[in-house]
Amino acid sequence: MADMNKMSLRVMRYNPERDDAPRMQGYDVPWDPSTSFLDALSYIKDTLDPSLSFRSSCRMAICGSCGVMINGVPKLACKTFLRDYPEGAAVEAMANFPVERDLVVDLTHFLEYIQTLKPYILGNQRRPEEGPNSQTPEQLAAFRKFSMCINCGLCYAACPQFGLNSGFLGPAALTLAQRYNLDSRDFGKAERMPHINKEKGGVWACTFVGYCSEVCPKHVDPASALQQCKVESALDFAAAVLNCTKKKEAGHGKQT
């Protein structure tokens, strides 16, 4: 370790018991081409400053815990390497979320929105003794890309609409809604559409900035899912208008 090259990192620090606002603190971290930002943060915590707080778990880009901003770009710390930042880098807490402490953010909104949209199979009456639900490769391909989400929240850190309006259901939650709406085994669309259609926090708060798809570490392409949600929402609206007209006509029929 001692003879390794050192890189200067600036890390966001915020202690809610002492600080009024986050500040940046510099650390010199030894590195080689295999050192990830998560390795660097662990080194700081283990050797330089045990008070540093950050989240992590799997260190292999599947748990989605270690999302941070690296030079202002949302990244998974475990999937981003110091070798790509020869000039050093700034590590900050994920944008658009309240900072609890150092690099730890409050994900409550994000988690509640996922729950709101019921991302699980609904209304399927098939019983276990009837065997598994079969699906054609085409039916699987329709939603497979959107099912790769690891709920890391990087797309929320990339979404200015979520930053400006924390009531927006946001990229990942709406993508999961679309993933289940597209699933041939699911019959829960009618339960999800009222949330998707909502005027303030629904899919129409999205203005297709598209940065969510750019930063997604799993290439889920949430921007695409949200545009499909908009098509569904528009069709749902048209159907509601038609049904309303039909009901009115039926109502008139009864009166006369």
């Binding site: 915020y14 809610p16 658009n96 309240p98 900072v99 930053g163």
Partner: peptide
């Protein structure tokens, strides 16, 4: 707890 909210201005 004292979560810090980073406000976005018009120049975001």
């Amino acid at each position: 707890r004292k979560p810090y909210v980073r406000e976005m201005d018009a120049n975001w």
